[in-house]
Design a protein around this nucleic acid. Sequence first.
DNA 1: TTGACAAATGCAAGTAATCCGCATATACTA
DNA 2: TAGTATATGCGGATTACTTGCATTTGTCAA
Lengths: 143, 143
Amino acid sequence: MVIAKVKHDCKDELNEVDLRATPARVALMSLLENTDKPVDVQTMIEYLEKNGIKTDPATVFRIVNMFTEKGLTKQVQLQEGKSRYELAANADHHHLVCTKCGDIQDISDCNIDGLEKDIEKKKGFAVTSHSLEFFGICKSCQR
Amino acid sequence: MVIAKVKHDCKDELNEVDLRATPARVALMSLLENTDKPVDVQTMIEYLEKNGIKTDPATVFRIVNMFTEKGLTKQVQLQEGKSRYELAANADHHHLVCTKCGDIQDISDCNIDGLEKDIEKKKGFAVTSHSLEFFGICKSCQR
DNA sequence: TTGACAAATGCAAGTAATCCGCATATACTA
DNA sequence: TAGTATATGCGGATTACTTGCATTTGTCAA
């Protein structure tokens, strides 16, 4: 059943958005489904290599751009000078970033929607997305 | 009096944080004081050149890093793959970024503080800062 | 099953943002 | 005004990311 779960085959998600199910894409979808924080490209490359899938950075960048364009993933920037990616389906949350150890936790229940509506009304600005991240020191780094 | 205002001399701010008042630093402080949206390094370089102040990118990066370290400025990232900087004294607001024309507007009155307190209580995470940005289409780009 | 073709990939080269070391220049201070 | 710590300029390096092109590979129809 674990197998069944993993093998539920990310191919379906890929086919749904008209993307061919190549080994690298399937593996990356699976990585994203089994990771609880946004993943950077370096980590993706290492994951692929560890799983015997030959690749190079250009391809991985193309893949995540394509995923994001097709709405499978969401690009997240946490002031690191690089991007991370998470499944769009799981993206209804925000992040707590520990500036000491780099750990990333999710938080939900932010009530930003009200603020968005306000903005639309007051500024005539059509909000399509927002980013909200908190930076600080996590529990364990506080000793 | 305009002169007086501009010449109120950013040197004071610089001296207060133990930074020497070099031409580039003074000019950049003045740029930041007279710009209503966060400024990127490219713009700073062009500004300095336009004002006859010879410089190079490494120096400007060093200056903004120093400014930020000393608390004069705040670094802002708007998903552009580069940083912008604004005066820390004016930083009690967030941004509306138009993904069509690139225009940036400020918004204030966000009430995030309550959420921050929640996080500290629930997660034991000591929040030191947060970033909140909205992306969408501005009034004029909507036609 | 297979063959054709569009779609992906690998590689090499290129760009943009940012940083670092070191020698020189310069703002402040006595 | 000289002395010194601090800034700067320059060259080179790094990292994230992109692009062009030739080759490979999913997919789908026969």
